[in-house]
Write a protein that binds this DNA or RNA. Structure first.
Lengths: 277, 277
DNA sequence: CCAGCGCTTTGATCCAAATCAAAGATTTGA
DNA sequence: TCAAATCTTTGATTTGGATCAAAGCGCTGG
């Protein structure tokens, strides 16, 4: 399903850290495999813009241009001036933050229709680094011009607030995942989450490409890559999933759900204060 | 102990879901121990409002009222209509999210000057539950009226975006913390983070009240409460800190920093793709 | 078509932290 | 003031998952 549009991760040894994005003229409307505008997370934002001027001209004014990044390509670095926001049209992107200690933590896997780079609104700098996990097509949106338009159209700001609050919800879920111990549960929840998101964007919820290596997945979920392998193997033996490298098929969503939600053993339950459900 | 405010979800008390916050007339300007308005996280927001009308009258229009919650008091529940945003004036609040599995994860400890409840902007519902950890004074701000004013003043929206992006940065840091293994590092980073935040609001950065129980701290950091105790004891033996129940003194910030940033052993390092620093 | 490299898998061993237990220390309400 | 109810600590034991090692596998480029 990924190959048909030549998007599959041809890990080209691109040693270059510089942006080697390919600029695509806006005229080239449809990128094969890309989400349609109306499935894009910024669609409502674009729609709001359309309220007052000719749709395309305004889009051109704010959507700087369409870019294509190769696997490993850098969209932006942490602490770099945040001039642009990116909407993913096809492919996938991972974001990560780093400590002084040199450790790196992957904080997000972003799929088509999602928006990147808004978190730096406050400091006007990106808070994390973003890299394409495979050949990825994005819309690059100028923050400054977006702000200028927003000055007159509060709807723009409201959409931005919505997108950010969505990001916050995502992090809350991830925290929930990392707080709970068990590796099986983490992976089950991870797969289910992906499945849901793919479904949201009209991709198959039962077979997809992970696009991240075992090592990245481990980092993202706070477990060792060997453990990721072992759990995948176990799931496979139980007939819950099938994997072949980064390609996955989910055979038994219910079982996965059971694993992910397993009330299981005690896991640092908060005091009565917390459990006020 | 929680009975004092009748908020805890005891079966027999189930009916008392109502907030038993004490309403303080706006006239009562200074709450002992509360942050001054200009140290409050929403100050810029309030200031922006002041631009166009008499300060107090507009504040009264948007800041619904000042409330005081007792320890354990419920500010809001997850999935409840998000009518208000809360600015903490004094005390502290914890936020937590829950899974179907019944597990609860504490996602935040909020100190004076911080803002709560904005994450629900998208869905117009709170995404998490918020409870006072001690007697806590807050400003309750009406979302609807805030939005009405924002319609004319983009600055309001910009401030909200800033506050949200700050929240996102906080979560990114927390993820970094939960991703890295070692319990000592988690606790060292936790203490340092608190110290910084207290300093930010003009409280002592070296002696403060944790306000959370060991159990809550463990939940927040993804470790068992017994481990929290043991690590605190170890820190104490090394002369790095002193604790007495929830009261802490930091004696050797540098040492704490060293522990927190310890390059340490391998910890699921992401692939070359990720470490593009 | 083959060699090299990076990713994935599997096995063996070790250890930090979870669990299980239970005794102090506080708090608080009867 | 006392006793139940909570927290905190500390000790003993267990264990999931990290580490260490070392084969397979599949691209990718020469």
């Amino acid at each position: 399903m990924w190959k048909d549009c030549g998007v599959d991760a041809m890990p080209e040894m691109e040693a270059t850290l510089k942006r080697d994005a390919v600029v695509v003229p806006l005229a080239a409307k449809r990128v094969c495999g890309a989400v349609a505008c109306r499935d894009c997370g910024v669609y409502r934002l674009c729609a709001a813009l359309g309220l007052e001027e000719d749709e395309l001209s305004l889009l051109e004014r704010v959507v700087k241009r369409k870019l294509i990044f190769k696997r490993g390509g850098l969209l932006f670095r942490a602490r770099e001036p945040a001039h642009y926001v990116y909407a993913i049209r096809s492919g996938s992107v991972k974001t990560c933050v780093g400590t002084e200690g040199g450790r790196v933590q992957i904080t997000g896997l972003h799929l088509p229709g999602e928006l990147l780079g808004l978190a730096g609104f406050d400091s006007r700098e990106y808070t994390c680094e973003a890299r394409a996990l495979e050949t990825t097509s994005v819309c690059q949106v100028s923050m400054q011009q977006l702000e200028e338009v927003a000055e007159r159209l509060p709807a723009i700001h409201r959409e931005m607030l919505c997108i950010m609050s969505g990001q916050i919800r995502h992090y809350e879920q991830l925290l929930l995942l990392l707080g709970k111990r068990n590796a099986e549960r983490r992976l089950a929840a991870f797969l289910l989450g992906l499945s849901q998101r793919f479904a949201l964007h009209r991709y198959s919820p039962t077979q997809f490409n992970l696009s991240m290596s075992r090592s990245d997945i481990g980092n993202y979920l706070g477990i060792a890559e060997e453990t990721v392998c072992r759990v995948f193997t176990r799931f496979q033996e139980e007939g819950v999933i099938t994997t072949r490298r980064r390609y996955v098929e989910l055979h038994d969503i219910e079982r996965l759900r059971a694993i992910a939600h397993d009330p299981g053993r005690r896991a640092a339950a908060p005091s009565a204060l917390a459990s006020g459900t």
